[in-house]
Design a protein around this nucleic acid. Structure first.
Lengths: 191, 191
DNA sequence: CCAACTATATATAAACA
DNA sequence: TTGTTTATATATAGTTG
């Protein structure tokens, strides 16, 4: 950020990397503390340096421990169970959706639509729509609308069913499980 | 840090504080990720916002858990010294990653649609929609609606033009080409 | 390697849209 | 209010001693 723009990649030169590390670590801590003070929020940062055995932590270990406690409070079994339940539930709904969509089919126009689609994905691209006759394209538009509506309605019904099926408490727990999962995923970049 | 130097204290004005929070949260996450990449170190940040139920975490929950586990193994005295506000850091990371995923999905939407269409016309039939994931089908529905609308609008404009200019074949063809282009463009409205 | 010193790159507070 | 733009304040890469 000075004298020259630095490419966002591991700094090859060893001493340069260390120097940058120390400078930026300091700046980062400052930023965190400023955010915390200016906005009155709880915030923390942890940096495991390759040059230090222990991580630099700001502002306190208590916050980190609280986070850990929250994550731990979600039994993994519970999480997996509920996630599986949800997945199975969704699968079931998807199966119903398939039938619904099938019912919407109108055999006569099916082949027309398929033919147009075939042209769209087979070299011609979307321009195939323009090259098709006006009536054909109009029919396609109509069919697409019908199909889209059917799919969306099915999706909504799916969501309503999910809401009924899962009680409030369960939903909260589920949300927490998701949050936990998200948290777990997002930390993957930390060494 | 601009226009005027800000005193390091809680920002009294509520909206100003919120604005600053969002700006600095973003900047902090960027700094953390840069430090991590440039120096090849593990680092994370957690920000508990007063505006969000869950903390912003960077870079991922897995790393956070590892970091937290490591911190736990440290004597408490040590912890207090080195701990940073991890939860907020982690929250930020999650938000950032989600944005990236969103952007990527948006870019790929066109291809996904074509792939789905390909499956529909290549043996699987409409059941391909059902076998696709819920999110995929929902996105498809959105795209179909947008495309259908674009096509119909173009067709109407085309007909109006045709009524005015009796059988100018060339003009009509040109209009249809425009319609094709419009259809492609309008996908940006999806999610 | 550290500290200090610029020249630039970034971040961002206010002003605007 | 949310998103841009602008003018400054900060952060920091490369340099020097």
């Amino acid at each position: 950020m000075a004298r020259k723009k630095v490419k966002l990649a591991l700094i090859a030169n060893d001493s340069a990397r260390k120097a940058t590390f120390n400078k930026r670590k300091k700046g980062l801590i400052k930023k965190v503390s400023e955010l915390s003070v200016l906005c009155g929020v709880s915030a923390c940062a942890v940096v495991y340096g390759p040059y230090e055995a222990r991580p630099i932590v700001w502002p306190s270990a208590q916050d980190a421990q609280r986070v850990l406690a929250r994550l731990k409070s979600l039994p993994e079994m519970e999480q997996n169970k509920k996630m599986m339940n949800q997945e199975a539930f969704l699968r079931q709904r998807v199966a119903k959706l398939r039938e619904q969509v099938k019912r919407q089919e109108r055999e006569n126009r099916e082949e027309e639509l398929k033919e147009l689609m075939r042209r769209c994905v087979d070299g011609e691209g979307w321009g195939a729509l323009a090259r098709a006759g006006v009536e054909e394209v109009t029919a396609l538009a109509c069919m697409l609308e019908v199909k889209a509506k059917a799919v969306q309605e099915r999706m909504e019904a799916l969501r309503r069913g999910a809401d009924e099926r899962f009680g409030k408490e369960e939903k909260v727990v589920l949300g927490e499980a998701e949050a936990a999962a998200a948290v777990v995923e997002d930390l993957s970049e930390c060494q």
